[in-house]
């Protein structure tokens, strides 16, 4: 069984198709999806969205690239180690509540303030967004990490 698997794989490798159409479209769609994911993420505190959806959409945008090209190209486009992103995400998620603990408020007390920015008007700054960044990074990195791992198996 293993043998045949390997065999089909090499055959597939030789017949690596260059689907120009898919690759072109995916590039365009990638930017749309990733922008949408950022939008969802940052708007999440006031309108539907947030770290989970944002992270998942970001991951699926990258998965699209992964399907259109291959892992090597993806890594050239985005030279990031997903394990690192995962770690940073977890650090954010655990660190932000701890920071509020260290500064004298109970664990997980978020702080917020409003500042006046010339063009955009009043903007809310919220430490919950920082926590959400942790969620975003963890979710995005893990989903992508899983698919890349499974995809590259036995190669």
């Amino acid at each position: 069984m293993k043998h045949t698997l390997k065999k089909t794989e090499t055959e597939k490798g030789q017949k690596q198709m260059n689907d120009v159409f898919l690759q072109f479209v995916s590039k365009v769609v990638f930017f749309i999806v990733i922008m949408f994911s950022f939008n969802l993420f940052f708007a999440g505190h006031y309108t539907p969205g947030g770290g989970f959806v944002g992270g998942l959409l970001a991951a699926s945008a990258l998965i699209l690239l992964l399907i259109a090209y291959d892992k090597k190209t993806l890594q050239k486009m985005l030279p990031i180690d997903f394990r690192m992103v995962l770690t940073v995400g977890l650090l954010f998620a655990a660190g932000i509540p701890t920071l509020s603990f260290l500064f004298g408020t109970p664990f997980f007390t978020h702080q917020h303030t409003y500042i006046e920015v010339p063009v955009f008007g009043e903007i809310a700054l919220h430490s919950a967004v920082l926590f959400d960044i942790g969620v975003f990074l963890t979710v995005a990195a893990t989903s992508l990490f899983i698919i890349v791992l499974v995809g590259e198996a036995e190669n």
Partner: peptide, 25 residues
């Protein structure tokens, strides 16, 4: 905040989310 679901996730019930990210990781 305005989005109750998100506020519950990151603020009111932040512990759930914290550990969920942990589970995910």
């Amino acid at each position: 905040g305005g989005n109750m679901v998100n506020v519950i996730l990151v603020d009111f019930r932040g512990f759930d989310t914290l550990f969920e990210t942990l589970v995910f990781g």
